[in-house]
Amino acid sequence: MAETARSWAARGAWAGIAQAGQLGATGPAGVTATLLDGFGLATLIAAPGGAAALSQAIVARLGIALPAMPKIASSASHDVIWSGPDQWLLRATTREGFGSLLEALSAQAAVSDQSDARAALRLSGPRVRDVLAKGVMLDLHPAAFAVGDTGLTSIAHIGVHLWRLADGPDGSVFEIMVARSMVGSFWSWFAASAAEFGCRVSTGRG
């Protein structure tokens, strides 16, 4: 793809909705939020009986196997996230080369590019579970929702896909994906819910 020749300005899902800065209470932030942008994302659906073959193809290319359960499996550059029976999201930290990867996988799966379809948010910090408890109807206790677990559910009547990544320097790390069109309402919920604890917002890739 002639990416360099593109003359149109891309406008990510968070544009006009949220920006870097501090939300709510001042002082040490109870929650840290990173607005993610620029990732590649696609839905992969295996043909009937074809999940194993698809998984092998992914292992061969990316070194990660498709989880059969609501889990996320990650390499340095890619994640595969369970998103329904025989269905996964494939995420790449960059869109560079993503199109050709999808092209290659389309022999083994129904592939639908969703790179622009979701807004993604990474959350961490000592109060991250307290914020999420205001909207997530899942038990996110460390023992109930382990690193690598994922869930499709809703927050404030908005469909979300969330998962837990490996712990970071400030404890548990969650990521949430939400439909692009809903991100304004989602952010309204998040900002109101996180305000009590104070939230540092930054932007990031991947």
């Binding site: 609501p70 029976p85 109807m137 899942l138 869930g151 559910t153 809703s154």
Partner: peptide, 11 residues
């Protein structure tokens, strides 16, 4: 059977 115990409002 796929997702675990969920609130009825998800259905």
């Amino acid at each position: 059977p796929h997702c675990g115990a969920r609130d009825a409002q998800e259905f």
